[in-house]
Design a protein around this nucleic acid. Sequence first.
DNA 1: TTGTCGGCCGATCGCCGACAA
DNA 2: TTGTCGGCGATCGGCCGACAA
Lengths: 231, 231
Amino acid sequence: LDPQLWHACAGGMAQIPPLNSNVYYFPQGHVEHAAKNVDFRSFPRISPLVPCRVASIRYLADAGTDEVYARIGLVPLRGGECEVDDGVGLLEFDWNGEEKEKEKEKPNSFAKTLTQSDANNGGGFSVPRYCAETIFPRLDYTAEPPVQTILAKDVHGEVWKFRHIYRGTPRRHLLTTGWSNFVNQKKLLAGDSIVFLRSENGELCVGIRRAKLGIGGGPEVSSGWNVGATS
Amino acid sequence: LDPQLWHACAGGMAQIPPLNSNVYYFPQGHVEHAAKNVDFRSFPRISPLVPCRVASIRYLADAGTDEVYARIGLVPLRGGECEVDDGVGLLEFDWNGEEKEKEKEKPNSFAKTLTQSDANNGGGFSVPRYCAETIFPRLDYTAEPPVQTILAKDVHGEVWKFRHIYRGTPRRHLLTTGWSNFVNQKKLLAGDSIVFLRSENGELCVGIRRAKLGIGGGPEVSSGWNVGATS
DNA sequence: TTGTCGGCCGATCGCCGACAA
DNA sequence: TTGTCGGCGATCGGCCGACAA
């Protein structure tokens, strides 16, 4: 999976530490993410934070939901080499809420949260002008109406086809034919987000972010780690 | 699962030995049914047929495909008690091909292989007259046209609703509303069979037989059991 | 008796501009 | 600029009798 598309899908709040950098590994956070109701009192000898070196990073996407995640290989560090590089050790996703795209100069991706009209069966997708003009291929505005076919690769490399038209009064950009099929196949709902990315080789890519995550995301879980402080 | 419906779905070719009867267990046939390419040369000590007593029988149906199967508990017999009751020891299914319903006096089930028109999307189901008159609830032929609602339980106990009408010139029995939904939900194809059964308590039941079995059914597999004879 | 076909009618899909937030 | 709505034409699902195997 292209790291560029991966980061566009994950959003700016998801930070991945550089390869070979030194980070802290938090077993509690890891286990709370992976499973519920693990009782750490059974493992009293585990250190709450473990200095590690980032040995490998794999950018992945769930085959069913398209949700992106990373598999990071960590090697524990021995005694003296415990200097951690920066404060970005904790892998945490928190891209919910309206995202402010604070890209530097060349924003090559755009995310939009689907409205009811976007997700409604039988409807089209209202393309924000900024997205159509900076991310999509150039449209021939001299035609009447201006129309083109958009091809976009998803995180699995599958290509999706959309009809992109500029019409209506006032004029606006819309995705029509192909859109409802995409919504149905990906099981998108109002509130989910769609990401368009123009990759470095000029290819258009498409990713999604679910409003409701496939796993986890529930209310806080007590792992028994700090029960002494709360009881 | 009702054994009556089970046998109607399995067809007359599927024989199940009586409880507590004595049978031969064939490990080779069993393993060839369960897995492919098991090399029996690794287990040269296994006897090719094992006298057993039938300790339990469970009539089951696959949750996904509705295909019926039986789980038979066998207890190996010691030395002297090896008298096998009859020749029905090998559990084998072979219901393919047009089945001849050679029921004795009270045929309470009927099977039909779906035609292209039956399975075609948007079409109905042409009910053979014999099935409509002997299995279905009595239809009021004085109405114009004669119509009734059919309720039928499948192997999971789920109830399906069909509109049964007697119309056309010449007159014939048809299932219309509800039929295409049944075909789609069960993923039926032309060549598959449908079984209607009137159970002892008068309930109507419906089962299916797939033309292509969910598992197995492929070409012959060499298990290495008799390699000496073939090489 | 029953399998297949074309007709036909109603429901749904999906593209459209109007309008307003 | 863009979200939602009603309109409406095209398509599809599904019920029908005609006809023939």
